[in-house]
Design a protein around this nucleic acid. Sequence first.
DNA 1: GCAAAAGTGTTTGCCATACACCCATGT
DNA 2: ACATGGGTGTATGGCAAACACTTTTGC
Lengths: 226, 226
Amino acid sequence: MEYYQGHSKYLLAVDCVVLGYEDEELKVLLYPRGFEPVKGKWSLMGGFVGEDESAEEAASRVLQQITGLDNIFLEQVEAFSKPGRETIARVVSIVFYALVRIHLHDKELLKAQGAEWHPLSQLPELVFDHREMVEKALLKLQQKAGYSLAGSEMLSERFTLMQLRKLYQAIYRREFDPGNFRKKILSLEVLEKLDEKNASESRKGAYYYRVKEEMVGMETSRIVKF
Amino acid sequence: MEYYQGHSKYLLAVDCVVLGYEDEELKVLLYPRGFEPVKGKWSLMGGFVGEDESAEEAASRVLQQITGLDNIFLEQVEAFSKPGRETIARVVSIVFYALVRIHLHDKELLKAQGAEWHPLSQLPELVFDHREMVEKALLKLQQKAGYSLAGSEMLSERFTLMQLRKLYQAIYRREFDPGNFRKKILSLEVLEKLDEKNASESRKGAYYYRVKEEMVGMETSRIVKF
DNA sequence: GCAAAAGTGTTTGCCATACACCCATGT
DNA sequence: ACATGGGTGTATGGCAAACACTTTTGC
């Protein structure tokens, strides 16, 4: 037991890279830091880990508090622990990324806190090492989306294959051939075709699909090579 | 600043999954836990993070202390933070895996601490969640080795293509065709052929190769599909 | 009719796999 | 001579990329 004695203890935080998809691009939820130091710069949403919860649970709780949403896709990215990473106190942060449906949000809740969605391609200056956290999170998402349809957590529950393709284009910052993408995705056999069509985004109208219930979160064969 | 007040602090540990390669299999360095609780069970090597170091630096320091080696390949696996994961105190552990050359070790140093190399395929019972750490570390190594020759950190600096192939077979627990493996690896253009041959492992003798100096740690195109 | 996306089919080339085959050499 | 790994070449199948083409429908 004296093994545990005499060692320093640290504040343990979680930071969440909350990602959403809107206007054919990925966005990250930021809020202005309201206190010193670095007051005014933009920050990821974070919080401290309580005594009765894991970092995963803390991240989930923070997300619930800030977005009002439950059951959010979360994956651990990495722990950031450099001594000087936050200037005031030593804080070790475990970073997660979260995938959310932007339009389901309680806009009032976000506005009340000054939170805003920022396109990933034009981030403002972020506090501390939060920019690096965003970059690492994107890499992790790219890995994940290469072997699953987890990215669809950012779309409506029903989506067309064009919507899914444009999402993938946003995630990987490259184009996918519409025909080939369709064949690839359908060959995975994780989507089920619905009877309804989306008539608003094309003349002809495209069928809606959704992830088969039993396939949510499942790994697939490789979708994107990188 | 009061933002930082009133939050709990925790012990922050690092645990290292030290991996080596010997007798055509992967091995992990374990040592018997010498104190309660769970005295006698096997444990990964770990330590606490000091005030002036990052988790990476702490892992590197712990490795140096225990193996006597410097400049070891290290990669972060994941943070483990469940409240009850260690029974006595709340300890958050950041897990790393390390790749080392078993034969370079100071055997005396290890023996003095009771440390032993255990084949990954026949692990004894481990303390707490250390077994899960080992499993996650192996997955991470498989990912890494699929896009780099980082695994060769477990071989001598000079190695034959058969040695490299058998290493890959150990990492992925499957066979690779000798001819195809050779062509694949050489096509990466990260190895340089040396003039010397290894005469001890075959009649004909196989040329030694080594990773080109400027290519150490570099990502390659995909080596293994999974 | 035209434009634009939906959806299907075809062609091509690359690459992974399987495997045949000769080489060199210690026993 | 022969067994063993070293090293090279080749045939095959599958799949990804490129792209042609038809369908549908709002304008």
